[in-house]
Design a protein around this nucleic acid. Structure first.
Lengths: 194, 194
DNA sequence: CATGTACATTGATGTATGTTAAGAAATCAA
DNA sequence: TTGATTTCTTAACATACATCAATGTACATG
């Protein structure tokens, strides 16, 4: 359980006086049960979610009805559809809760004012953007080149904590393979190790 | 041939008086022959390249020695390794010229001062970032779900002009398939159309 | 012009991954 | 506890794509 304000203070180094100014109506809290959608395809995304506790996922559904998980968002992660927010276009994605979760909900206006009030917030926001890009680059690089096994190994080393919290078929979906294939990969790995 | 300053004025709406201030030593021009590298793996990327004419590519080489093209950059496009620039880490990527090209070379310092001098530049830079993210999202979505043929069709509709300028094996590399597969996909498409 | 180099095509064959289907194991609800 | 879902595993089979190899084609360069 990670309080949003504490996080901004400790990680983003936002000063207390600024935080107090930021207690606006554009910031709210929300408790959601597992399975709750906070964004659906076709909606224009107007909020960014900070996960205080629990776990969300961002995913798309293709023409054949298959889910493709783009991102997991555990505690202290932000999740939203930046493109939809920025360009004001209907989202291609869904965001829902994989676990019961507590969220801080940031309206766009909140972020704008926070940026103008706090230089530290601005810096941190920039960091998040750049980090997002770095992450997506890695993702592209992995999807374009690596086979099932290396994808799984990379995922394990990057997100060891997530593995234990989500069903395997979701990890498979994130990796761009079928649950059956993932099962085989895992079998191979244990055989060659034990 | 698209002059960098003209581009900033017309597209980014940067005011002339600001542009004049920006004629600093942190901005230079460079003419490169086909095949010239402007970034190599292991280097820390310190520059952003604006393509005035010609065509660059950004790509990685995997453990088996295979190239994977991440991005093409034709006229009026920017290309760099943002993560390397921002985090100051050695790049995983190469950038080289596919055609003889004319570049505007922006040092990081240039961008910083431009942002502080010109609000329009700041806005445009933000737009470029967001656009980059949108582009990468599409890319992930495509790589994770679509088969060879749909990837090719999507590429054609997004970048019809690039298709005619680069060898097919590079397009295959961008799509994450082999040149042979791409050739077969193209054959199928012409057979089913004609 | 001749010759080489890069690129594209095509076919034969191999392989990783998908598909389908069934049953085992785990989780959840009553 | 019991039954009902959901998830995971396993196997047989299908398939898209990769690999390997040969040939064809274009365009460079001497």
């Amino acid at each position: 359980m990670s309080n949003f304000h504490d996080y901004l203070r400790d990680k983003a180094l936002v000063r207390s006086e600024h935080l107090e100014q930021l207690c606006s109506s554009y910031l709210s809290n929300r408790v959601v049960k597992k399975g709750t959608f906070v964004l659906m395809k076709g909606e224009v995304c107007k909020q960014t979610f900070f996960v205080e506790s629990g776990l969300l996922r961002l995913y798309s559904i293709d023409s054949k009805g298959k889910e493709h998980i783009i991102q997991f968002a555990p505690e202290t992660w932000f999740v939203s559809d930046r493109s939809s927010i920025y360009f004001g276009k209907p989202s291609e994605y869904f965001i829902d809760a994989i676990e019961d979760s507590e969220l801080a909900v940031l309206d766009n206006h909140y972020i704008d004012t926070a940026i103008s009030i706090s230089p530290e917030f601005r810096t941190y926001n920039e960091y998040l953007l750049q980090n997002h890009i770095r992450h997506l680059h890695n993702r592209v690089n992995m999807l374009i080149g690596a086979d099932a096994q290396s994808r799984y190994l990379e995922f394990m080393s990057l997100y060891p904590n997530i593995i234990q919290r989500v069903p395997q078929w979701m990890i498979a979906s994130y990796l761009g393979i079928t649950p059956e294939s993932l099962s085989r990969v895992r079998k191979e790995l244990t055989e060659n190790k034990g």
